[in-house]
Write a protein that binds this DNA or RNA. Structure first.
Length: 776
RNA sequence: GGCCCCAUAGUCUAGUGGUUAAAACGACUCGUUUACACCGAGUAGUCGGCAGUUCGAUUCUGCCUGGGGCCACCA
């Protein structure tokens, strides 16, 4: 007898799948390959509900394709080379990365990851994600570092990477440059202070939110159309407190409506300052250090915040403030530190993207985006790009940039491919021209520079049996501008191809329509749901919204899933208790044949829906068919025949039950893999050859003689049954109450082939012809 | 300020240029004990607002309102 506990069921089949290597990718396959560029989750604790939601959705597709006869390439990776991992390791091991050598720290990371990753991945296995977990990569392991460095070298040699001294977006907390894609907007309340500058002993009021940058003030811009300041253009202004002279320049960027209409340019207050300095060839003055401190004589060593307060205090004491008001404005912060970013000139490495916008847009058009409108987000991002992709990070932990710099001749030396992966700080390089020792690059690559190579990394694990373009990239919409975009960049630059033919963008999970966040405390842990209701119930829930839509988490939806699982288990048990399988395919009773004809309609519809990634419709239609058509009606209709019918009648019903239930199970197999495997193994395995339902063939239409009238007959019999039930319900009578049924001549004609079963299921004692009527 | 998405029953989600807009949960009225009370039958209840296109709009278009996202601005 079947197990009724989901934990027992899941444990059994997880082990079975693993032992029998059901989801193993066969490199020697002759089948067509369906390849999935599966997202490597960041190792930073546990799987969250958003993961469960989106991975379940991609697994539906993987399992469907597998049953359709594809050799599915579905690797599993973990992303563990970035800042989150660095932080995690520091916390777990009570160390500071800066206190260890890079090699020591990476070794510690690799060692720690080895300890914690299996437990982390177990959540994915428990959810029934059908990856081949033996095709595993980590974005920091030796093979990945090698590939990442190799690709860096190729890009450099193809003149697509350059090193530049340039004011870049800088985070003072982690002391590293960051990319445009890593910025977030934050609403902040700030003091907007109007300060007295002096020109010819007259006061020129200037409003600013960053008075601490007065020491780096290079010029004042006024709009050429601004009558108030027109005469000042070309003159010099005196910077308050610092008393140095700066030019007053004409620039239409100065907005007459904003502040006082006159604008101070500092190096560097914002992105525009960077352009302004370049445009007017001003000499930059850098007064902020990499760790966010001031280095002007006046405020030496103070943090930006302290310097701002002290400056305002000094201005106030010298009567240099005209006006002060609190304003709310949005500022750019680094998403990981939540601190306002600065612009600091440092030497960094960049991948060229600004001059490739058109090609990148073109690549995007070659990919099928699901849902379609997500392509717009990709395009908007490209159109708005203003910086090349900054790929170097001044971190300890990461893939080292495999380069040295010869100070004598200013030449950049790269590692030989044969010595990869390499940490340049561990190896001496002699410049061939100067015969002197070159300086190793200490920076590491941005995580995205490596994770944008997941297709190539995963392919390398198959001896390149799998190549790009992959069939599918599933991912979240929040990383279109990063992961999707950068992967497209890399595939274009390295192989002049698109990385995948399809990209499926999943939505996120909300709770009470609000985004979940740890700080709000409104987080649902999938581990608890898995424990309480099981993986199938959670997956069933994940199938109840369409691709790309956000979904609100409601426990009742999980419970609905759980009910479905019980129902299908019960129905299967019932079928097999009563089953009386003939040796050969029996002649079918008309009711049975017509029912199978209905099933064929379902199969057809499900197939077209699954092809379009409409797993939602697949679930909805299959569920409706199973619950209403199969369980509530077909089973009721044939009960009498199964209990009291003759051999021929029983055999027809048994045969029909067998193939219809098996078909239904297969349709559900991608969505609820555990329960369907349980039922398959318990009841069907002795008749079927497949080792697992997940390796069985996806249902095709059942070979029967379909008749055009079938659907009408089926609809009519259900309609009559429903009407009879309604009458009985209204009369508050049992469904078993005997009746006298009157059918119209036409109804009788339509129902002729199934009349006997209709009489049995409605418990009709007498059948009359005339106006439709039910007598109790 | 620009762009994108969303708005359907009490709740959460489907869907459609045309009979009566579809499930689930919830509510209400009942029934049932030879698969299933984690069950069955039935009842009530819904297309944000305004205009346009159309014989006909919940569906297409525009505007508005509300919610979400992205970008720009951010002196």
């Amino acid at each position: 007898m079947s197990k009724t506990n989901h934990k027992e069921i899941e444990k059994t089949w997880l082990k079975y799948w693993e032992d029998k290597k059901i989801y193993k990718f066969n490199q020697k396959t002759k089948k067509k390959i369906y390849s999935i560029d599966s997202p490597p989750p960041t190792v930073s604790g546990e799987m969250h509900i958003g993961h469960a939601f989106s991975y379940a959705q991609q697994d539906f597709i993987a399992r469907y394709k597998r049953m359709c006869g594809f050799e599915v390439f579905y690797p599993f990776g973990t992303d563990d080379n970035g800042l989150p991992t660095e932080k995690l390791i520091q916390k777990l091991k009570h160390v500071k990365s800066s206190e260890l050598s890079r090699k020591e720290f990476i070794d510690l990371c690799l060692k720690t990851l080895k300890e914690i990753t299996p437990k982390f991945i177990q959540d994915w296995k428990n959810l029934g994600i059908s990856c081949d977990y033996e095709i595993y990569y980590s974005t920091i392991d030796d093979k990945t570092r090698k590939i990442s460095q190799e690709y860096f070298i190729d890009l450099y040699n193809n003149n697509l990477i350059y090193k530049a001294d340039f004011p870049t977006i800088w985070d003072t907390e982690f002391q590293t440059p960051v990319a445009q894609a890593e910025l977030e907007d934050r609403e902040k309340e700030t003091l907007f202070t109007t300060i007295k500058f002096k020109v010819d002993n007259k006061i020129l009021p200037i409003a600013t939110t960053r008075p601490e940058l007065l020491g780096a003030c290079l010029a004042i811009f006024v709009n050429p159309k601004d009558k108030r300041y027109k005469l000042l253009i070309g003159k010099k202004a005196i910077v308050p407190l610092f008393n140095n002279e700066i030019p007053i320049l004409s620039d239409s960027h100065a907005d007459m409506e904003k502040g006082t209409g006159a604008l101070m340019v500092c190096s560097y207050g914002d992105k525009y300052d960077v352009e302004a300095v370049k445009k007017h060839k001003l000499n930059q003055k850098i007064i902020i250090t990499k760790d966010g401190k001031l280095n002007t004589p006046l405020y030496e060593g103070l943090s930006i915040k302290e310097a701002r307060e002290k400056t305002l205090e000094d201005l106030k004491n010298s009567d240099l403030i005209i006006k002060q008001e609190k304003i709310k404005h949005s500022v750019n912060v680094y998403e990981k530190s939540s601190k306002e970013i600065e612009f600091l000139p440092t030497t960094q490495w960049f991948i060229k993207i600004l001059d490739k916008k058109q090609e990148l847009l073109k690549q995007g058009k070659k990919i099928k985006w699901n849902p379609k409108h997500m392509q717009k987000r990709y395009e908007n991002w490209i159109r708005g790009l203003e910086w090349d992709w900054s790929i170097s990070r001044e971190r300890h932990f990461g893939v080292p940039i495999p380069a040295w710099h010869c100070l004598q001749c200013d030449k950049i030396l790269l590692a030989e491919k044969s010595e990869l992966p390499i940490d340049p700080t561990e190896k001496k390089k002699i410049c061939e021209t100067c015969k002197s020792e070159a300086i190793p690059e200490t920076k590491v690559l941005d995580t995205w520079a490596t994770s944008s190579l997941t297709p190539q990394i995963a392919s390398s694990l198959t001896n390149n049996k799998v190549t790009i373009p992959y069939s599918l990239r599933p991912q979240g919409h929040d990383i279109i501008r990063t992961w999707a975009f950068y992967t497209i960049v890399q595939a274009l630059y390295h192989e002049n191809k698109i990385p995948w033919k399809n990209i499926n963008i999943s939505g996120f999970v909300t709770l009470g329509k609000e985004k979940m966040s740890k700080s709000k405390g409104n987080v649902i842990k999938p581990q608890i749901t898995l424990e309480e209701y099981g993986a199938d119930a959670l997956r069933y829930w994940a199938a109840s919204s369409k691709l790309g839509e956000n979904m609100d988490y409601q426990e009742k939806d999980i419970i609905t899933g759980k009910k479905f699982l019980t129902k299908i288990l019960n129905a299967s048990n019932f079928v097999f208790i009563n089953l009386n399988l003939p040796n050969r395919k029996p002649a079918l009773e008309e009711t049975d044949r017509i029912f199978l004809s209905e099933l064929n309609r379902l199969i057809e519809s499900v197939n077209s829906n699954f092809k379009n990634y409409n797993y939602f419709s697949v679930k909805l239609e299959s569920e409706k068919f199973f619950w209403q058509t199969f369980a509530d009606n077909y089973l009721e209709i044939i009960k009498n025949r199964m209990y009291q019918g003759n051999k021929k009648e029983k055999e027809s019903a048994s045969h029909t039950l067998y193939i219809s239930l098996l078909t239904i199970l297969k349709l559900f197999a991608p969505i609820t893999p555990f329960i369907t495997e349980e039922i398959y193994q318990t009841h069907f395995k002795k008749y079927e050859k497949d080792e697992s339902i997940h390796l069985s063939k996806w249902p095709n239409k059942i070979q029967i003689n379909n008749k055009k009238s079938d659907h009408l007959v089926w609809k009519t019999i259900l309609d009559i049954i429903s009407k009879v039930r309604q009458k009985k319900s209204e009369a508050q009578k049992s469904m078993k109450t005997p009746i006298i049924l009157t059918l119209t001549k036409q109804e009788k004609l339509i129902l002729k082939p199934v009349l006997k079963d209709l009489i049995a299921v409605t418990n009709t004692k007498e059948l009359k012809e005339g106006k439709f009527n039910v007598e109790l």
